[in-house]
Amino acid sequence: MWNVIKTRFSQGCRTSDFPDGPSGLPERFRGRPVVSSKPCPQGCAACAEACPTRAIRTSERAAVELDLGKCLFCTECVTACPDGHISYSTDHRLAASARADLVMSGPEARLARALDAQARRLFGRSLKLREVCAGSCNGCEAELAALGNVVFDLSRFGVQFVASPRHADGLVVTGPVTGNMRAALKATYDAMPTPKLVIAVGACAISGGPFAGSPQAHDGAESTVPVDLYIPGCPPHPLTVLDGLLRLLGRLPG
């Protein structure tokens, strides 16, 4: 017992300052990509060609469109662009309420909107989530589990992961939805009481990620259940997930 108390003192309080303090993310952290609004030289599509998941489209007006839902947050486009039009910021805020809001064509970010007043009254101070992994590599699970540690401490916001869909207000889906998990995912969704939310976490759950087009998978959660919140990343940083959840609950300023 004495040992526990002694170690407790030496370990100190480690909970992050989120959402009040700085995120403290390192310089190389790849958060929200920044696409320059300057036009590219005609015909150069080096970024689109380099992208492993076809997340980038170049249009005839020489504008670049980047789909955060497909993006693996790698460095291929940054390296490929001869003019430095694409770069990464350390901004962890990525979540959006609509699939179309994830497609960026300039510097502006269309972040997740808060639920309506009635839903906020129901879920705003207490949100219970059930997680279903439907073919993820376990990277997103690792970050969702990390939300429960003393640093991110999800439960201080009244959000908790629960053991049964019967106890849940929201379903968190990861993975591209494999053929072998589709029935279990649907059954879990059906077992939840209404009103209910669905949150797609990670590139796989939003678009299939690196597994897009695989005959064994279904290119994301929307193939099987309706989605209310999209949290991009591969995997998303725990702060990205926290930011998305709190925006949905209307607990972060616009």
Binding site: P176, P210, S214
Partner: peptide, 20 residues
């Protein structure tokens, strides 16, 4: 349950998706 066809996708390479 997690089978998503990794080996078949890798065998289609080497391509820009392989290392991911």
């Amino acid at each position: 349950y997690q089978h998503r066809g990794v080996e078949a996708l890798l065998a289609a390479g080497p391509d820009k998706r392989g290392v991911f």
